[in-house]
Design a protein around this nucleic acid. Structure first.
Lengths: 205, 205
DNA sequence: AATCCTATTACCCAAATGGGTTATTTTTTA
DNA sequence: TAAAAAATAACCCATTTGGGTAATAGGATT
């Protein structure tokens, strides 16, 4: 029997979801909370198998709630169940510790299979959410840098200094300094820190 | 009719997959290549709806092949179809531009629905792969840094220098330098670059 | 009340970095 | 084959950074 806890402020949605889950074979939903405050009091002492969490909640937000739950229960599986499909909501939720992200219009059948999925180590997401997540890995393929400059930038991102980079690439430190100067010009930055930030933001490395 | 191209060196696997796909209602697989070299010659002039790509290929690897295809066809949907489930293979593939990642033992029914999925903007992945991807977003919740130090580290990651950080936090640059010294000690690093790398790697910011 | 932690400010000095300029060799491209 | 781009190396100088040390004040903890 899979034990599910809901955190959802809308009365009708909460009751509806609880009924669907609790009424399904192999699922149980005996506790549902209106806000994170009450959920945070109950859950640490009574951890369920899965938590379904809304984002828009009065008081502590669902994202902040996830962070706090994860501190005391790092292995708890939490699925975000929300209407928000914007990048920030998705990435903030995942960074906070959500293992899945579903939209509220998700079909009940899919919701139930997603709950099973997250328990068995999966990360249920809608197609469009998954594409956002995957897309965040894709790097620019139009870097203004040359091959050597990209190599050097990579080393900069690893925190290496002139000398270390020169040694690892078997050239003089003068050469590395020249490469770095050119990198800065091309990226329009004036320091290592800015170069590293740009490299990461624009996935140049 | 969904046009699919295969790149797979193993003869039996290639023939089998081609037969499954081409024999299915609404799918067509008229071209299958043994290596990236030949695929790279054909595909740019005859772009299909979806490419299924193996990783282990003689000559140009599947990952390198994706990169090259994406340069000329940035919107091409590519699904990695491989036996490798290690982190590097997964992340390198996604970074190279793959939109989906499936294992070769994937059920034919799932494979076909995944092809439809990727065309409609999704990113088909197995549960365990999705968990890896989502896991890469989760940050550590046990930072050794104080609140103020974390603020400063965030600014370092944005490429700001002493003075800029001091001004944005309304304190003297001496204070910021002290914070940075303490951050370096706690993180066991000796430069901005290393601190930024550590901050990003361990998701301290 | 005593202690610890955090945040704050300050000074000194050596090392690293950033910017400007010039030049040779190799590789790539037109 | 000629021109352009990339990689290599060097010099000078001002600024920034890193490391050591010291001190004060407020808050939390014991």
């Amino acid at each position: 029997m899979i034990d599910v806890i809901l955190v959802e402020d809308n009365h009708d949605v909460r009751e509806m979801l609880a009924m669907i889950i609790d009424g399904s074979e192999g699922f149980s939903c005996k506790h549902a909370f209106v806000d994170c405050e009450s959920a945070l009091q109950f859950i640490p002492d009574n951890p369920p198998d899965v938590v379904l969490m809304d984002i828009d909640l009065p008081g502590i937000s669902g994202i902040e709630g996830i962070k706090r739950l994860k501190v005391v229960l790092p292995n708890l599986d939490i699925i975000m169940l929300t209407v928000h499909e914007d990048d920030d909501s998705v990435f903030d939720s995942l960074c906070a510790g959500a293992s899945g992200y579903l939209l509220k219009n998700t079909d009940p059948t899919v919701l139930l299979s997603s709950i099973k999925d997250v328990i068995s180590g999966g990360s249920p997401m809608s197609s469009s959410i998954a594409r956002k997540v995957v897309g965040s890995f894709q790097r620019s393929n139009s870097s203004p840098l040359t091959g050597r400059e990209t190599e050097v930038l990579k080393k900069l991102c690893e925190g290496q200094n002139h000398k270390a980079i020169a040694e690892s690439l078997f050239v003089s430190n003068h050469t590395i300094r020249m490469h770095i100067k050119n990198i800065y010009k091309k990226l329009h930055v004036h320091s290592r820190g800015q170069a590293v930030k740009k490299a990461i933001d624009e996935r140049l490395v």
